[in-house]
Design a protein around this nucleic acid. Structure first.
Lengths: 331, 331
DNA sequence: AGATTATTTGAATACGTATTCAAGTGTGTG
DNA sequence: CACACACTTGAATACGTATTCAAATAATCT
């Protein structure tokens, strides 16, 4: 490893001068500067970012705790976050939510230094929030939020859940099932609540097995839909709390010979790119903007890190709308 | 920031002792150890990984340069790599291939320290290879390889291209188009060569516009297929060099009212999870193992980093097979 | 020219941890 | 009791960079 000291020796100057040509070239004479640059070339010098981080107390890297990539929503946000961070000169350490034991994940993530954190893994009542506050790390939540507030970027999940349910109700459906993930997250909690509110307002009673809360993996979703359809009383429409879940359901239904929407209507949520694929044509609810939630999150994290205005909280709630396509139909 | 010095003061010992309870607890007396642990608790001490990295010359992190996530193949490999690295105690810095200017990307990636690198962005003749060798970084390539060898994990692309073409030939097709990405990569080069070999052996002449080399984004693929179908002489079958491309093509064809495979046959490559989705049922060529190429790459990188056996090169070429599903049909 | 100010430089130090080295303590042996 | 030996400890140093500080040199002004 060639260090700035080696460069200094070669160039016949002090290590300080080498450091200066990198950080403040105008503070050093032309003759010395060129000599240093030349020595750098010769030795193929690469500054050590770790040493630099130690003294600067900046790593120029952020951490991202994303939901699993089998949900395309997180594919889109991860891409945006990584690329946008890079644009701002930051590297991104990517982690995936660890179902069942997020605490050990947080411990792992926090064992390395970083300048900022973006996470979508938080529960509405999650002790990690206070932990992060105490450690004074800059963080913004996206897709989910915490009961205590903090910086977050979300969609109005309650409104979105309501919109989805109302779309189905308007089509004459009354037996509407809900399949989603853990209600301890603000996301699923809101989408569930909006749905239940809308349906209850119509005086509709939802049988217990119409509501399935599961892990959001393909196998778990298939298990959920299978157990639901095994019962005598079947829904005429299904509200999947994410497009990812909806697409898994679609897979199952097609496999089993059901026709969508003729046999059963299906609406998703998030308006991911896949949902508009002509093999799916998934009706969904989502945000209609040029920037996804990840993009919004990273931009605000950058603001947060580069201008110490920690006073004002960033609370962004974008409005949802229905994207009517081909998987829902009048009863 | 509370440092080991602060802990030492609080516990009434030296900083050395604090360091020892973390790295070699048996070397310190029980009484001192407990005092230190107690002080750590009280002060909520977190060791600074940057300082630790500086002296250890290990960052416990790797860098990944992946293809774009709009290709689900890279979704699967990225997930495997990140999770497996975590399993081994490593964090993963994720980067995405920068079409048009990978050199500036490499420069950026190399500006931070890391213990190992996994990349799928390399060209068959890429100067970065020598650069990496010179810098003595541990790296393994996956999905693509370099002319000079090095450590790599790939599928037999030539054989795979041949298999795809032969599948279509066996079904009676002779007007077979090829749509793929940059031929400067070993991947597309091999898949193209295998196809061309098989087709040429049958004495078939492929018109120029049957071969489209493009960026692999959705819009570019749509542009390619559109321009191809605008011509008078149309293919009866298309070989898409990745499943991702095939699925984009499927989207386009369905949008334009074509029926697959009745109007046109389509075969992909990679056997990604999406390809078996019942809305696609994509016939494809791929590897039939429990571990994807990313998984294999990370495992070998770990070997490489943790046991200085740099002598033997890791050259893994898995065998492809055809997965016949519903997008190809007898002419 | 002499005095003042601006520019350029290197020595020293700091960042937070791990490790070497020597000194100190205590234990057991002959 | 003298000696060897194991154990425990802290001071000092190293990792590679940035920065402060004071000294040296060059440039400017009266």
């Amino acid at each position: 490893m060639v260090s700035s000291k080696d460069v200094a020796k070669r160039a016949g100057v002090s290590q300080s001068t080498v450091s200066r040509v990198m950080n403040d070239p105008l503070k050093v004479s032309k003759i010395a500067r060129e000599s240093v640059l030349h020595a750098m070339e010769e030795l193929n010098y690469r500054p050590n970012s770790v040493a630099r981080s130690l003294v600067n107390k900046k790593t120029k890297s952020i951490a991202l705790i994303s939901g699993p990539l089998h949900n395309p929503f997180f594919v889109e946000t991860t891409t945006s976050i990584v690329n946008s961070a890079k644009q701002h000169g930051y590297h991104t350490n990517v982690h995936f939510e660890n179902f069942g034991d997020n605490m050990s994940l947080y411990k792992d993530v926090l064992s390395h230094q970083f300048d900022g954190l973006i996470l979508s893994s938080i529960f509405y009542k999650d002790p990690i929030y206070e932990e992060l506050k105490k450690l004074d790390v800059h963080f913004v939540m996206f897709n989910r939020k915490h009961q205590s507030g903090g910086h977050y970027v979300e969609i109005d999940n309650i409104a979105a859940g309501r919109l989805a349910a109302e779309h189905l109700l308007k089509l004459g459906h009354r037996d509407i099932a809900w399949i989603g993930g853990d209600l301890k997250t603000s996301t699923f909690h809101g989408r569930h609540k909006g749905y239940l509110d809308a349906v209850t307002e119509q005086g509709i009673q939802i049988p217990e097995h119409f509501i399935q809360v599961n892990d959001t993996t393909r196998v778990e979703v298939h298990r959920a839909i299978e157990s639901m359809l095994a019962r005598k009383q079947r829904p005429t429409a299904i509200f999947a709390a994410t497009d990812s879940i909806a697409i898994f359901i679609l897979d199952y239904l097609h496999e089993k010979g059901y026709s969508v929407p003729d046999d059963i209507s299906l609406i998703g949520m998030d308006n991911i790119e896949w949902s508009s694929h002509h093999s799916f044509q998934l009706t969904t609810v989502g945000h209609d903007g040029p920037k996804n939630l990840g993009q919004l999150a990273i931009e605000h994290l950058m603001d947060l890190m580069n201008s110490e205005k920690k006073e004002e909280e960033i609370n962004i709630t974008v409005e949802p709308k229905v994207f009517v396509r081909k998987t829902t139909k009048e009863l």
